[in-house]
Design a protein around this nucleic acid. Structure first.
Lengths: 201, 201
DNA sequence: TCCCAGCCATGACAGGTGTCATGGGCAGGT
DNA sequence: ACCTGCCCATGACACCTGTCATGGCTGGGA
């Protein structure tokens, strides 16, 4: 019997996935949480063996939760199950210690298989996503550029970004200009959008 | 026995919701589709009574699908089940003829209840969402402003937007300026983001 | 040690952007 | 018929942005 923890902030999706997995004879959902920062504690108290983690969650992202799990409960294996198959997410997930990565777009049957493989110690990654992830390569952005670009996501002016980052306006413009060049965009808004869709920020 | 059609582009979520609803004794999932433009045909051939529609779908949005259903199969009732509880979505959903609106964030139990109420001819709207929807009110944007703002979402320059909309650069700037004023933003990128999060575009 | 990459900052320039005033055309309501 | 609101367009102005050149600083490799 494989003991599963489910982490997804949408109660309906969480419950539905639980219903789906409980149909499998060899899988048992032993815990459900709706926040990333509840994952480690719940995994500990429920003695879960595999954690299904959504990326978008309050508290901690699924990626960060996987990192905590690796540090505090190394015998627990994480499987990222997310809506967005952004290239770059896969790499970050594996770097964070996740054992697998599937998108919510996969056939329902394959989820149980993925759980079994992860539980058996294998790594499982959506094949289509894996190639796309390798295509886009690692982030070309420096840490600072990524940070500034993140602040530019909401469409703020350069002055507002500079204030939030405690930097001069000119420096922000330089970082943004570098990011625009590296992403192949022509405005900072487009660069921010591209970087996000590639999982770079 | 209530006959249900499920429309969601994420196969995993669709399958999981099906597993969840099939646990109910009086509910039967008779069809599943992954695209908005397959909803009407599938509803017709499966003789579904209630359609659960996600908003974000290829082909047609759930809102548009609800509109088609009302026109072609008026006896079928639609229930919008979506990830984003954006104020403004509720109003648009009800305008499109949907009988209910719930977010994926609701407890699993309530979904079956919502389905039963919709089937019984009642309207069901997430109470928290309903008040928020009334708070934000209807869209302040004119049709043209919303259209231009939609083109500005990806961070394009004004010139690029003008080319795509077949308008002069000056006109685009005017529409954007009006939209910026109405949304209380200070750049078009921020205005586009605000309008989207309010369900106005 | 030198050198390089990244970070921060300044200044200047061209071109993009947001605002405003103005005007014509078109539908819908009184 | 009149008014109102929306759409489209033009032109001018101040300001914001993206780019480039330049320089100083720091923390690693070679």
């Amino acid at each position: 019997m494989i003991r599963i923890l489910l982490a997804d902030d949408q109660a309906l999706v969480r419950g539905a996935l639980a219903a789906l997995l409980d149909l499998e004879a060899d899988i048992e959902v032993v815990a459900q949480v709706g926040r990333g920062d509840e994952v480690v504690a719940a995994a500990r108290s429920s003695a879960a063996q595999v954690c299904l983690l959504d990326i978008e969650m309050p508290g901690l992202t699924g990626l960060e939760a996987a990192e905590r799990l690796r540090a505090e409960l190394p015998e627990v294996r994480s499987l990222i199950v997310t809506t967005f198959g952004r290239p770059g997410y896969v790499r970050r997930a594996l770097d964070a210690g996740a054992a697998g990565f599937v998108v919510k777009d996969t056939p329902a049957r394959e989820l149980a298989d993925a759980v079994r493989r992860v539980h058996a110690g294998l790594r499982v990654v959506d094949p289509a996503l894996a190639t796309e992830s390798l295509m886009s390569g690692p982030s070309p952005l420096t840490a600072r550029e990524a940070e500034i670009l993140l602040l530019a996501l909401d469409g703020s002016t350069v002055a507002a970004i500079a204030a939030r980052a405690h930097l001069s306006v000119g420096t922000v413009r330089n970082h943004l200009s570098a990011a625009i060049g590296k992403t192949g965009a022509s405005t900072r808004a487009e660069a921010a959008r591209l970087a996000q869709s590639n999982g770079w920020i």
